[in-house]
Design a protein around this nucleic acid. Structure first.
Lengths: 365, 365
DNA sequence: CTGAAAGCGCTTACAG
DNA sequence: CTGAAAGCGCTTACAG
């Protein structure tokens, strides 16, 4: 008759408990449960006994202890701004989905560090890297001048859509400029010439690249740039609505643009509201296109023609790259993983573009 | 001249490193940096020296080591299904926002365990609870018969919108039945009598409670229940679209319902698409209402009148309750926190309800 | 090949 | 009051 198992009231079973139950050392249990080569020299029956004991005691290795011993937590971090209003959320959600999914495939868990604002919270990045994660993914970070100040030394990092290159950090980006170029060229091809561009936050590289693509497309079609058709906005639907509304007011009774190129789907969502409030019908009276292809693009009426960025795929790649970096950091080898990855974009055709209406409508008074 | 700092090439500084740098024991460093009472007996100058050394070496306490010693990770887990299609995402996102926010307020980080499907993945819950989190929040879990099988013994748990009571788990729910009752009563008050209800997944308590509220509201208004106006759906916009479309086809040329009560905003989104595709205009031809008040309710045209569940507040409360449970678990005291919390719901009036059109329109053929 | 010991980096309980 | 020691639960390097 085996000795009665010692129940430690409130605590989960430890390796030692399992060893005691099975009549072997904790080390033997570790070897068997981890499938180490060592375990092959333990008899079949003993191994079975150990496994039974582990199940009986519902043994589960303590992650913190394991992390301490192995120097690896098997957890990756994601730092991102998660807006309350739900504005930026679609982008984040898609990225997050990709990260979670890919991490799970590699048996890693994911920890989220929510920031309010990069400017204010950049200083906190270092404090995340205290051994609870093995590496960190920065989602659309804006670190300003001298970003190195904020970057921890001992934690591998990957950044998606960083606002500029970050020393030692793998950058994952998209062909934003060519994407903007291409969609504006398609508008031109559809017969549009007066194309309004509502920009993202001026100064952010994402906004500037889209402006650059817009201008290059006009140039390539020999359409002179009209400063009145470039309006500074922000990456939010609230801004899209305000900016569109203001433009319509300033131009009451004058010519409507043929089309509006919004620097993001969120902006397009807001612009759509403003246009609809002004009694204009999209795409009959004017066409509109977005950028990103987030969920927003499919829930609007009409559904948006937009530039698709493969956010989810990028996020999955971010995880894989990060894991490679973590491994080489542990092995103290030079990483073979690339230090920069750029994904192509793709135009998604939906229902928000038609040839210009003839005769060209005016802005309602 | 102070001794040159020993640089351990690739590794972050430890307590011992800081001690060495400052010429004191690791323990003294720990006491000072943690603000322990003990530290008051360390001289002002020594304390300053220790702080300087910590900054100089960029010392950051190792989370795993601390967790092992303290038996506390300062991390809470969230287990949820995060759909790829973006269907359930709004609910999750809002809950997640609340969790993250509240956790950050309490200096806790949040780890996410993404599930594909509760039925299939329930068995994995236990494996999350391996010391990497101090407690776990289950988002809308469906654990089937004998849920105790899946619940870990040593980890405090809180569940939001669980599909039935879970032993030992704090439940956080909403007044779904009264919410459904109330919004259907409002439709009735607006003059509607033929009210179609598209249900959520039959069998889920969330769906059944909404059906019950719907039926009770009809009864209380002496409107006989018409089985033809209760159609079984699923909690998704795809389902909402399919079900609405099928109903319209089956009733071509017959009377249109006065209004549609959808068991969720997502369903309403889909139903709206189907109605619009059939050439019907909401709310002129018929009214429609949703349930949840997720982001979807504000991005549709027209914006949805719906039953608001305070998801974010619930999630924040879930965190607070969980932290109380964790504390009493650590103290081995009986928890004072409640074992069940029900939040009220609220009708949000937007633009998708008007009095019935006269004469009542027919379903287009 | 194998098993007892040392160590991961921290905190806490306890002897001086 | 204070500081050296033991311990958290695991793994790994190393002596037998």
């Amino acid at each position: 008759m085996p000795s009665a198992p010692r129940k430690r009231s409130n605590r989960p079973a430890t390796l030692a408990d399992v060893g005691r139950e099975a009549g072997v050392s904790a080390m033997a249990v570790s070897a068997v449960l981890n499938g180490a080569r060592t375990s092959t020299r333990i008899s079949r029956e003993t191994r079975a006994r150990i496994r039974e004991a582990a199940i009986k005691l519902q043994y589960r290795p303590n992650a913190a202890a394991r992390a301490l011993a192995q120097r690896r937590m098997n957890t990756i971090g994601v730092a991102a701004v998660i807006n309350e209003g739900g504005e930026f959320d679609h982008y984040f959600l898609e990225a997050f989905n990709g990260v979670i999914h890919s991490a799970a495939l590699h048996n890693q868990t994911t920890t989220v560090f929510a920031l309010h604002d990069w400017q204010r919270d950049a200083g906190r990045i270092g404090s995340f890297c205290d051994g609870r994660i093995d590496g960190l993914i920065l989602i659309a970070p804006i670190l300003g001048e001298d970003p190195a100040r904020y970057l921890p030394l001992h934690t591998p990092l990957v950044a998606m859509h960083a606002n500029g290159p970050l020393p030692g950090v793998v950058g994952i980006d998209t062909d934003e400029e060519p994407g903007a170029f291409q969609i504006v060229r398609e508008l031109v091809a559809a017969g549009h010439r007066r194309i309004l561009h509502i920009t993202g936050n001026r100064g952010l590289v994402g906004a500037e690249r889209r402006i650059s693509g817009y201008r290059r497309a006009l140039e390539s079609a020999s359409i002179p740039f009209d400063p009145d058709l470039l309006v500074a906005g922000r990456f939010s639907s609230v801004a899209g609505c305000e900016v569109m509304q203001a433009w319509l007011q300033r131009h009451a009774g004058q010519a409507l643009p043929d089309a509006v190129f919004c620097a993001s789907d969120a902006i397009a969502l807001g612009a759509l509201e403003a246009l609809s409030a002004a009694g204009l019908v999209v795409p009959r009276d004017l066409s509109i296109v977005g950028f990103d292809d987030t969920l927003a693009a499919r829930t609007t009426v009409p559904q948006l023609t937009t530039v698709r960025q493969p956010i989810r795929a990028m996020a999955m790649r971010a995880v894989e790259t990060l894991l490679e970096r973590i491994q080489s950091h542990l092995d103290q080898t030079v990483p073979e993983a690339p230090s920069s990855i750029v994904f192509p974009v793709e135009i998604v055709h939906r229902d928000s573009v038609l040839p210009p209406r003839q005769p060209r409508p005016k802005v309602p008074a």
